[in-house]
């Protein structure tokens, strides 16, 4: 091991953070770029399924809450892009990777939001699952990512409470509203569990990421936490649990549950979900339509600079 490598591993061992100017192995850097940019893209693409309901929110209060939430997601996208830029990749490169499919985003956003209840379900289950993962990432070994996670977690837990509260209003509302809540739970429960990624044995990046302490807990452990915490929440709502096999296991101290439909998981990851094409097309279309606006800013700034130089001369 070179002295640089020794120093790097000593820091990892001592739970010290790796900072942008520190030496780091190439693979560590690549792995971080993959993970952080994927996380940033998820925030950005995630604006679409929720944004889908901004113009139809059923009350002014809910409209304001949703707008503010989607705005937070965009903000998270920004911090994460910035955190990733500290690793030597530009935002435009990351956007290109997203648009060409080279970089991924969370597969959950390839499921359509079909009713108002889906907005609540996303806050409750999707943000809920994300938090379980992100809480553990607050201890990730890369400094900027860890600090970003600490900030993001605070806002996400707020979103989760708002989402749960929105679903609660439906679950305690009219029979139609309750049915809407149940339908959203039935559709989003399974994809939310898949957000933790494949089984540890199938996960391509897990082992190395654990050694580097980029990742702090395994996919299956995090998923189990989420399964456990959700049972009680569903009970409080008075809704039916989508997993008929859910059962407390005294010996393990956890709930046992059905295995997931991994064929569906891989199919959506590989681009064949309900909305994969739509999400990317939407992003590309908005980005392309914005090109003349970005060009205008550059041209304007250039004119101002030239004028200033002329005045100075």
């Amino acid at each position: 091991m070179t002295p640089q490598e020794e120093q790097f591993w000593a820091k990892i061992e001592a739970e010290e953070k790796i900072e942008p100017k520190d030496w780091m192995p190439d693979d560590y850097r690549k792995n971080l770029i993959r993970q952080i940019s994927q996380h940033a893209h998820s925030e950005v693409i995630g604006m679409q399924p929720e944004g889908n309901w901004i113009t139809r929110a059923p009350s002014l209060r809910r409209k304001a809450v949703l707008l503010s939430k989607v705005q937070d997601e965009a903000g998270h996208g920004l911090y994460l892009y910035s955190a990733c830029e500290t690793l030597g990749i530009s935002r435009s490169e990351m956007i290109e990777q997203l648009q060409t499919g080279k970089a991924k985003y969370s597969s959950i956003f390839n499921y359509p939001t079909l009713t108002w209840a889906d907005v609540g379900a996303i806050g409750w289950l999707v943000d809920g699952a994300a938090i379980v993962n992100q809480v553990s990432l607050q201890r990730t070994s890369y400094g900027p990512y860890s600090r970003g996670m600490i900030r993001i977690c605070k806002e996400e837990s707020f979103h989760q409470r708002q989402g749960y509260e929105a679903i609660l209003a439906l679950a305690k509302g009219s029979p139609d509203q309750k049915a809407m809540a149940q339908d959203a739970l039935d559709r989003f429960y399974w994809p939310a569990l898949m957000m933790f990624g494949p089984h540890d044995s199938e996960s391509a990046h897990s082992q190395k990421s654990m050694q580097w302490k980029i990742k702090r807990e395994t996919n299956d452990d995090l998923r189990q936490k989420f399964v456990d915490q959700t049972v009680k929440q569903i009970e409080v709502l008075g809704l039916e649990h989508p997993d008929k096999a859910i059962k407390w296991n005294e010996e393990r101290g956890h709930y046992d549950s059905s295995d997931l439909n991994w064929d569906e998981f891989w199919s959506v990851i590989n681009g064949n979900g309900h909305c994969n094409r739509q999400r990317i097309e939407h992003h590309v279309a908005a980005h392309d339509e914005g090109e003349w606006v970005r060009d205008a800013i550059s041209a304007y700034n250039e004119k101002k600079r030239a004028k200033k130089a002329q005045n100075a001369a």
């Binding site: 950005v44 604006m47 679409q48 944004g51 901004i54 113009t55 409209k63 304001a64 707008l67 503010s68 989607v70 705005q71 965009a74 903000g75 996208g77 920004l78 892009y81 939407h282 908005a286 980005h287 339509e289 914005g290 090109e291 606006v293 970005r294």
Partner: peptide, 22 residues
Amino acid sequence: ISEWVSYGPFLEEDIAYGNVSL
């Protein structure tokens, strides 16, 4: 204004639109 959210020319504008709409 809210119709612009996720359709802006770049991410900062999505945030600004959300803000003004709010």
